[in-house]
């Protein structure tokens, strides 16, 4: 039995009378792409926000590599190797694409208290950044101001930032949000080779993407996971079909 990299135990988060997370338990295995799906309002983003530390759960525990990180702030979790992307694109709009990724590289290197040497000409920052940009297919746009990139390119950039921190696990909150078919396919092509090397928890609406990428799928309905299984079994699971895929036949 493989030791899980992320263990979520009975997470509860309420907003007033609404239980957005109603006892979420989850195991993510090292190297797998684990998808978290569910209808609108199922509490997917709330769950991700608790995993990344942006929200504190009311109850429950989160273990990352066996360590209880429930009380850790966002930046500390990130330094442990738990990176994330946001549903609404979150980049540095006034930096170039290269600088965006260089900020992620710098974060892993430390040395943030250097007050004197010029950072932009520091190859130890920019070379790894360029390499990651290359991986997501943005190297041609390295010197373009990020705010001027197309939506899909900004999403790719955000993924590059996540990768550049060399995380042990990546939380991707709807990486295809707002993307066209073509862009979406591109993103899938970028994510596919990561399979096996990097653990990913993928929150996604686009079912084609989920079934193309995921090793396992957890279905969330009204803040509760109703099933965790392989894509094949999820597709055939009656409860899932009834609750989510809207198919009662």
């Amino acid at each position: 039995m493989v030791e899980s990299i992320l263990t979520v135990q009975n997470l509860v988060k309420s907003f007033g009378a609404l239980r957005a997370s109603d006892g979420i338990s989850l195991d993510v295995l090292p190297g797998e792409i684990h998808a978290l799906i569910g209808p609108n309002g199922a509490g997917k983003t709330t769950a991700v926000n608790q995993l990344s530390g942006e929200m504190q759960p009311d109850e429950g525990r989160i273990l990352f590599e066996g360590q209880d990180i429930t009380a850790f702030p966002v930046d500390k979790r990130a330094r442990l190797g738990l990176a994330r992307s946001y549903q609404i694109t979150s980049i540095f709009p006034n930096f170039t694409a290269l600088e965006n990724v260089a900020m992620a590289v710098q974060s892993t290197q430390g040395h943030n208290f250097r007050f004197w040497e010029n950072a932009k000409s520091d190859l130890s920052r920019t070379e790894p950044a360029l390499e990651v940009l290359n991986r997501v297919g943005l190297s041609d746009l390295a010197n373009t101001i990020a705010g001027g990139l197309a939506h899909g390119q900004q999403r790719q950039l955000e993924l590059a930032m996540g990768l550049a921190t060399r995380p042990k696990m990546l939380l991707l909150d709807e990486p295809m949000a707002g993307m066209g078919v073509e862009e979406s396919r591109r993103m899938t092509d970028i994510l596919l080779p990561l399979k096996g090397d990097l653990t990913i928890l993928l929150v996604e609406h686009d079912m084609d993407v989920v079934f193309a990428l995921a090793d396992r799928i957890t279905v969330l309905v009204l803040g509760k996971p109703i099933a965790t299984d392989t894509p094949q079994n999820i597709r055939n699971n009656e409860h899932v079909r009834a609750a989510y895929l809207g198919d009662t036949s």
Binding site: D75, S90, F113
Partner: peptide, 20 residues
């Protein structure tokens, strides 16, 4: 400097800085 880049990052998107 590197420190300066951190500051400028904070100005543009502090949430992202923490997530990094």
């Amino acid at each position: 400097s590197r420190f300066g880049m951190v500051m400028r990052g904070c100005k543009q998107n502090e949430t992202r800085m923490r997530a990094l």
